[in-house]
């Protein structure tokens, strides 16, 4: 399975919200959609899900134009909310039926997911009697119960306690393992780094960076070393102005070129008592701030 967006544009009135979004996501992998507030993530997702059409551009599924009658989407919107006054089982079955499931299948699937998320005891309760985190787990069922090929999760981890976050991680990993396309949108970079193989950073309606996360990181100049040692002061003296102290207390040594790094590493390990030494790779957070931080 391969999902591809090609040069999608969209304007609301005079305001151009998307200025040509192109990205590609593979089945069995998670794709991270990043961007600051108002960058155009939700609009891209809505166009992808055919809530409204794009002004121009194509959406391809396995190379052919997307057929919405065949491809199923599961969506956890950032703005959460279902029917607060309705019984949980009733509304979950209703949503699964709307996606084309038969009643008996819908009940079976919803029950499976309630069980999987540890929510079976709330089956016939009203939604508004649940805590916010539990309501979010209920909403997750609407995104998964109909077994969609494409799962879109917008900020899935916000509001979950660590135990529930763990549970959600497991569920997401299962979905990825089933070969589905999982699209993540989040501001919590650590989760994106943990799950996503590929990312796209959207800024001001444009994709400013997209590709495999490892490749992106490796493409950064590899001329910096991160060093942890008991003899920090001595190392600092030796490298003087090439050396800075990171927030977490590690030393960052900038070399004149990346070819030097092998010899410098050898020199350091020979001479000092080193706890840890590695080539510096930027975190996703750093990359995000670099690409999405400027302009607009």
């Amino acid at each position: 399975m391969r999902l591809e967006l090609r040069d999608i544009t969209k304007s609301f009135g005079d305001k151009q919200v998307l200025k040509g979004i192109s990205l590609a996501a593979e089945g069995g992998k998670a794709f991270g959609l990043l961007g600051r507030n108002g960058a155009g993530k939700t609009t891209s997702i809505r166009i992808l899900m055919n809530v409204f059409p794009a002004n121009s551009g194509e959406i391809l599924f396995d190379g052919a134009p997307m057929d919405y009658s065949k491809v199923q989407f599961g969506y956890l919107p950032e703005e959460r909310g279902l029917y607060p006054k309705k019984k949980i089982i009733d509304q979950l079955v209703y949503f699964a039926e709307l996606k084309g499931m038969r009643h008996s299948d819908a009940v079976k699937s919803v029950d499976y997911w309630l069980e999987r998320l540890g929510m079976s005891e709330y089956r016939s309760k009203r939604l508004d009697t649940l805590s916010k985190g539990n309501q979010q787990k209920i909403q997750l069922v609407t995104a998964l119960a109909h077994n969609p090929q494409i799962v879109i999760l917008d900020e899935p981890f916000s509001g979950l306690d660590p135990v529930n976050a763990m549970l959600l991680k497991d569920v997401v990993k299962e979905e990825i393992a089933k070969g589905k396309i999982v699209l993540f949108s989040s501001h919590q970079m650590n989760y994106i780094e943990e799950f996503c193989d590929s990312i796209a950073i959207i800024n001001g309606g444009e994709v400013v960076l997209t590709g495999d996360l490892h490749d992106i990181k490796r493409n950064y100049p590899r001329n910096r070393l991160v060093v942890r040692s008991e003899q920090q002061e001595a190392i600092r003296k030796e490298f003087a102005d090439k050396c800075t102290v990171e927030e977490d207390g590690a030393l960052l040594i900038t070399l004149t070129s990346s070819e030097e790094k092998q010899s410098v590493m050898k020199h350091l390990t020979d001479r000092y008592d080193i706890d840890e030494i590695k080539v510096f790779e930027p975190s996703l957070n750093d990359i995000f701030v670099e690409y999405a931080g400027q302009q607009e």
């Binding site: 809505r46 899900m49 809530v51 989407f73 969506y75 919107p77 703005e79 959460r80 909310g81 279902l82 029917y83 607060p84 949503f95 709307l98 996606k99 909403q139 609407t142």
Partner: peptide, 15 residues
């Protein structure tokens, strides 16, 4: 009500 409870976000992508 559906709009203010944001159930609409799911509905509009389902039907």
């Amino acid at each position: 009500t559906e709009k203010s409870s944001r159930a609409m976000e799911v509905l509009i992508t389902s039907a």
